[in-house]
Amino acid sequence: MILECSQCGSRYEVPDSAIGPDGRTVRCANCKHSWFQSGASPAPAAPPPAPAAALAPEPEPAPLPPRSFAAAEPVPEPSYDPFDEPAPKQRSGIRWTIAALVALVSVLLGGAALLYWKAPQVLTQLGLPIGGANAQLVFSEKNVALQARTDGSKLFIVSGKVLNDSATAQHVPDIRIQLLDGERREVYSWRITPPVRTLEPKAGFDFNGAKVDVPSGAKSVKLSFVSEFDG
């Protein structure tokens, strides 16, 4: 039993037997206040447990009626031409988008491989001639990349370096980037204005150009020089 003084709030833990069922007068050892403490009321006896009800036996399940089985009919052999091509399966929107993206990346990687060689004569054989106003200017360190933007569009980037491979200063025209299909026809093109118009001997500069959502039919990339005065 816990006793608490109403004057100073001191608390004491005493056994129930020290108070008794009839109670008694106690005094606080801290402030000397006295009061009558009633005894603890006996806890009510727990009721006896109710007898468990007898479980009724579960009824037996009714027998199932006999089933009649119809005679199995032979399945006819399918009639088809073994050399006939099956109809193409319908692709879901997500699979079609992924397949188109993979195809576009393959095209861009192929374009990057075509732009990798630095020798002018190899570029000419591959259909990537320097051409234009000055054959002394050489493209090098070319690179093609495809980047996904946050709005879901694709950014097509072409970068590289222009070198003056001659012993004299050269005029630098605009740089034209052409995307060609499998039959070498142009599907898209744009121009890059060089940072300088006069390039000293053995000097060079970096360039880069980017476009959003270029046509997906491109199979190769061609770089060339074009006069800044041409339309």
Results as ranks from 00 to 15, higher is better:
183 E>L: 06
69 F>L: 11
40 A>L: 09
225 F>K: 02
67 R>A: 11
107 V>E: 09
183 E>T: 14
155 L>I: 09
158 V>F: 07
49 P>I: 01
195 P>S: 11
229 F>V: 14
176 R>M: 08
220 S>F: 00
90 Q>N: 07
148 A>Q: 10
221 V>L: 10
223 L>V: 10
231 G>Q: 13
191 R>K: 06
103 A>K: 12
173 P>H: 08
4 E>G: 07
27 R>V: 13
79 S>C: 05
31 C>V: 15
189 S>V: 01
153 S>V: 13
33 H>S: 15
153 S>D: 11
16 D>A: 14
43 A>C: 06
69 F>K: 08
15 P>Y: 07
108 L>S: 12
92 S>G: 15
6 S>C: 03
217 G>N: 12
162 V>W: 07
159 S>A: 11
74 P>C: 04
208 N>D: 13
165 D>I: 00
57 P>Y: 06
48 P>K: 12
40 A>R: 12
148 A>R: 09
202 K>C: 00
90 Q>E: 11
18 A>M: 03
62 A>W: 06
56 A>V: 15
92 S>W: 02
102 V>F: 07
84 D>A: 15
211 K>N: 11
176 R>W: 08
172 V>H: 09
70 A>M: 03
222 K>E: 00
8 C>W: 03
60 E>F: 02
201 P>W: 08
203 A>H: 11
202 K>N: 08
124 T>A: 06
169 A>K: 10
34 S>V: 07
64 L>Q: 15
79 S>K: 15
145 A>H: 09
135 A>H: 09
156 F>Q: 02
